[in-house]
Structure formats: C-alpha cells, structure tokens
Design a protein around this nucleic acid. Structure first.
Lengths: 206, 206
DNA sequence: CGAGCCTTTGAGTTTCCTCAACCTGAGTGG
DNA sequence: CCACTCAGGTTGAGGAAACTCAAAGGCTCG
C-alpha cells in the first residue's frame, strides 16, 4: 500500500484539495488534519457530506464519473497522500487483497452514508447532534485521542450544514446539552461528561 | 457478466430478498419489479435508503461488514439475479474492466447517496418531492417507459420515509402540485404535466 | 489592539408534524 | 351481485420543532 504513495500534498486551512468537476486521476488518504467534503447546488445552497480524519480516503465518490463531485476543503492545516488511481487499479489487479480492500472501503462509505440518511431523515435535531458527538468521539478514540475531550475543527455553521440544521440551532443545542450536564463546551473545546445520556438521546424516541 | 448469473430468485410483493444482519455471500441485480431497501434502528424507527429498479444492483452496502446492513423488500412481484460475490471477485481479477465496472457502480451509489444527503439536509418538503418525481421520471425513461406518466410502486408512507417526511405531508404536496397544475394524480398513477415547473421548484431557493 | 468572524441568546414566524375524522377503492364473503 | 371490511389516502385544526431576523458579546489573527 505504501508503495502507491507517490507524493504528498499539504493543504493549508481553508484551501481546496480538489474541486467539484475536477477530472479525477487521484484519490487521497488523509495523513493529518481534517477535511470536509462539500456538495454545492446550482442555487448556491450547499451541504457538507462528510468530515474526514487521518486514515480516511477521500475522492472515491467521483470515480463513477471520473470527475470529483464535491469540493474537499481543509478545516485546519492538513496533509494528504496522493494515490494515483491508474496505479491503484493496476496494482489491484495483481493483488486481490488490495482489490478487496478498496471495495470494502467504498462499501463502508456507502454504509456510512446510509447511516447519515437515517440521521437526516428520521432523527430530531437533538438526536442528530448527540449522534454526531458520539461518532466523533469514537473516531477520535480509534486514532489514539481522548474519546471524551476533543477540539472541534469545524464551526457551528459547518456542523449545522452536515446535520441539516442552522447554526443557531446547533448553538442552542450545545447550550442545552451543557445545561443538562451531558457535555461541557468552551468554544470548540468539547468534553463529553455523560456519554450514556447522549447514547440514550440517540436511542430514545418510539 | 452474464456468465456470473448462477440463478434467479422471484420475490413476491412484500417479501424480503435479504434481511439486515444476513451474512453477505451474494449481491443481486434487479431483473424486473421494484425493491426498497430499509434501514431500521433499535427503537423501531426506519428509513428507506433507496428504491431499486431493474438493472440496478442491491446489496453492495454490506460488503464492508460482509453482512447486509438493510432489509431489501419487494414493492411488487419482482425478480433478481443472484451474483455470488466470491465468483464476482474471482472474475474481476481476470477481467480488469469488470473490476472497474464494480467500482464505478459503487462510486455511483455513493454519489447518489450524497445527492440524497443534500436533499434531506438542505431542501424543503416541496423541493424534495419535486426532485423525487423528476428522478423517478428520468429513471423510468432510461428504462424505456414514459418519462411523464408512470405508476408509483410505493405508498405515500414509503415516499415519506424515503424523503424524511410524514405521509400526510406527502399527500398534501401531491394535492398541492396537482392544484398548481404541475402534475395529475389518481391514486398511484402520476402524470407529470409541467416538468419545467418541477425543475424550477428544485432549483429555486436562494 | 482593532476588525471581522464566530457564537450566543432572544423574539417572532414558518414549516412540518400530530391527531383526528373521513373518504376511496380493492378484495371478500354472504 | 352487493354489502362489508380494511388498508391506503385525503383533508382539517392545532401544536411543536426548527428557522429567520436581530442584537450583542467573545475570540482570533493580523
């Protein structure tokens, strides 16, 4: 796998790694930092389709059209390794396990997207934010960071865009969660105090 | 591709093709009929993640976990061809074009899901239904059916689940669209009268 | 240290949901 | 063949959730 990494790119905060419509010749593995992928409609409305942490692959969604279908933007100074898609394909031919690995990655992305559909389609604002925090917590912990205390790399507005809510709603929810003693928030520093309460929030509703 | 089709299965209306949690050894190509895929939460709430017409592949989302992550249910008497996944993988090794084709399929599904995320996250009820009808129209027409007149295979409730709305809301929207002269509806028979108006609905909002 | 962005909070509004009643049409049994 | 039943669909009234608009305070970064 490492043999594929032909080069690396640094993406300063706020800069694009790729742009909607760019021809797709490469996909990227996030090395460090955080990216968001954003899909923009003709009328200017946009939706964040994902936040991407180190170890995750971005760009796979454009493979069918051989062109990127979203913008990828760095939320903080980040680095990604470049995976030339033709080389990847070449190597996959010789290495069935890699082929399987790629499919697994894509399948997991589909699965993740379906979870998001449930979130946007069937959950209330409160539940969405709780689910978001728990998901982030889980991902941070698998990367060796604290599961309970971390820094949000994204603004309230970006969280809102991801969750299908307005920034004011997100802000109010943070305040409400803090009031209820579920979390502590100081700006973008978040501490999950009562994860069980959050889990119950997500799992509740009948 | 045809060599892969080891067998076919008929799925009578309302019956399951596979169930959430089933070990994944096969994926399916819809032959005729219509399927829905449904993701259910612990608390019983569920979300329809897709409607699947002939020519589409279902089951790819479970590949990462090697287990199905949704239920697939027939909306009408349907038939699917069974693609054994191990054979598929085997053949893909020899046939790079097939490998590419599978990736393309999965990528398209990711892309489609992202469009759904935008719909659920950034669009109003009215826009969602308009987008749904236009999408269905487009898919019917690529299958050789009329782009303007077709039979909905799903109930108002199922449309609602897919679009993140309640059945009453869907019903009211149908009535409103009909009143405005955009469509004609009689039960599940729909006729798109003014597709441009529908397109404008989707593309509006600033 | 100032400018601008991000965030918080409040008040009022809109959208969609909930609950409820009623209608319609397809299938069933007398 | 007709009345009955029942699931699916429509429509209305009222309410809740989230949005919009607005104002003010707090960080961050140049």
């Amino acid at each position: 796998m490492d043999a594929l990494v032909s080069e690396r790119v640094r993406i300063p905060r706020g800069k694009l790694l790729y742009r909607q419509g760019d021809p797709l010749t490469t996909v990227y593995g996030v090395r460090f930092g955080t990216l968001k992928t954003v899909l923009t409609l003709q009328d200017g409305r946009s939706q964040i389709t994902g936040f991407h942490l180190p170890g995750e692959i971005v760009g796979l969604d454009g493979l069918g059209k051989m062109a990127h279908v979203s913008d990828a933007i760095a939320l903080e100074d980040s680095e990604a390794c470049v995976l030339r898609f033709d080389e990847l394909q070449e190597l996959a031919r010789e290495l069935p396990s890699l082929q399987m690995q790629i499919m697994r990655l894509m399948s997991n992305e589909i699965s993740r997207d379906h979870d998001m559909l449930v979130m946007l389609g069937a959950m209330r604002a409160e539940e969405r934010l709780a689910a978001f925090l728990l998901n982030l917590s889980q991902r941070m912990s698998t990367r060796g960071y604290s599961a309970t205390e971390f820094l949000l790399r994204m603004s309230r507005e970006e969280i809102g865009s991801y969750l299908g809510l307005k920034l004011e709603t997100v802000s109010r929810l943070f305040s409400r969660f803090a009031e209820s003693g579920f979390i502590q928030v100081k700006q973008r520093q978040v501490k999950l105090v009562d994860m069980d309460a959050l889990r119950q929030l997500v799992g509740s509703r009948c």
